[in-house]
């Protein structure tokens, strides 16, 4: 995998890259109780993510939990986790923007944006140039095209079928009776890829069963599933610009990025926290709202 985690040399990122890798204990040192911070909350179908940024745009805390069945409560808990990491108090949160399918369930949000907008903003922040963003989420996939000014030119979401999404991999992990977290490691051990061609999750499952029956190695089946995810994404739209990938699926399965690069013959860029891209974008919107309030 070629990890490109930051802007090119001619473009200075608004925040120094190492900041993102600070451990929570280090993060806490920089924040006094007077300082304003901005929260972004991405309530996704699978996980809820909260990102906190300060007035300079530094990421100072984050929290990720399964969305579960009570989005409001989960969003509260994620905020508490993020505040704890940042060593900040709730009073310091000046603005909060929510996003994701559960964006209207975040009771403490002062505004909301779609996840399309937030992923775009979050990615452009790290890669301020014309880019194509591919987000592979738990429930849906998105392809967003941005111009060099960060404006959205177009976007596409997958159709109703879950094939190619995180839900698809979860379903297949269950079928193969392996923990979801083992998939990436197992796929890396594969020597041959089996072909899974259907774009229907149910049909794909029957293909998997056929390979199980034939005695194919689990590693090869999983690599085949990863290849299937890639094909489903590539069917959605043409990739015309530099490509950035985000989402929980690539965050937890970085081997998917390697395979994607092989497939398209291009380097794929990823932000430091791919799963947080939407939440960071939402926090950036919150910060921008504050700025416009003050104007």
């Amino acid at each position: 995998m070629v990890a490109v985690t930051c802007c090119g040399p001619d473009v200075q990122p608004a925040i120094p890259a190492p900041t993102y890798y600070l451990k929570s204990s280090n993060m806490s040192k920089a924040y006094s109780t007077e300082q304003s911070i901005y929260a972004g909350v991405d309530v996704g179908a699978s996980h809820t993510k909260v990102a906190l940024i300060d007035t300079a745009g530094h990421l100072c805390g984050h929290g990720v939990r399964k969305s579960g069945v009570n989005f409001s409560a989960t969003a509260e808990m994620c905020l508490a986790d993020a505040l704890h990491m940042a060593n900040c108090t709730p009073d310091q949160v000046t603005h909060t923007v929510s996003t994701g399918y559960g964006r209207h369930n975040v009771t403490y949000a002062t505004g909301n944006q779609t996840e399309i907008g937030c992923h775009a903003k979050g990615c452009y922040f790290y890669f301020p140039e014309a880019i194509t963003v591919i987000d592979i989420g738990g429930q849906d996939n998105k392809i967003i095209k941005l111009d060099s000014q960060g404006r959205r030119i177009s976007f596409k979401m997958n159709r109703k079928c879950a094939a190619g999404t995180g839900a698809f991999l979860e379903e297949m992990a269950t079928r193969l009776d392996i923990p979801l977290s083992d998939m990436d490691g197992l796929a890396r051990q594969s020597s041959e890829t089996v072909k899974i061609g259907s774009y229907c999750t149910v049909f794909s499952a029957t293909e998997v069963l056929k390979y199980v029956r034939q005695g194919e190695k689990v590693q090869d089946i999983i690599k085949g599933l990863f290849a299937s995810v890639i094909r489903r994404v590539l069917e959605m739209d043409a990739l015309t610009e530099k490509v950035v990938m985000t989402g929980g699926v690539v965050a937890h399965n970085p081997y998917l990025i390697d395979l994607f690069e092989e497939h398209i013959g291009r380097v794929i860029m990823t932000p430091p926290f791919p799963q947080l891209a939407g939440a960071i974008g939402a926090a950036l919107y919150a910060k921008a709202n504050q700025t416009s309030d003050n104007e």
């Binding site: 907008g117 404006r151 959205r152 976007f155 979401m157």
Partner: peptide, 16 residues
């Protein structure tokens, strides 16, 4: 999904 699509489209128009 419809709601998200439409809202995102209007955000896009606003940006443009």
């Amino acid at each position: 999904q419809t709601k998200t699509n439409i809202e995102a489209f209007i955000e896009q128009l606003e940006e443009m």
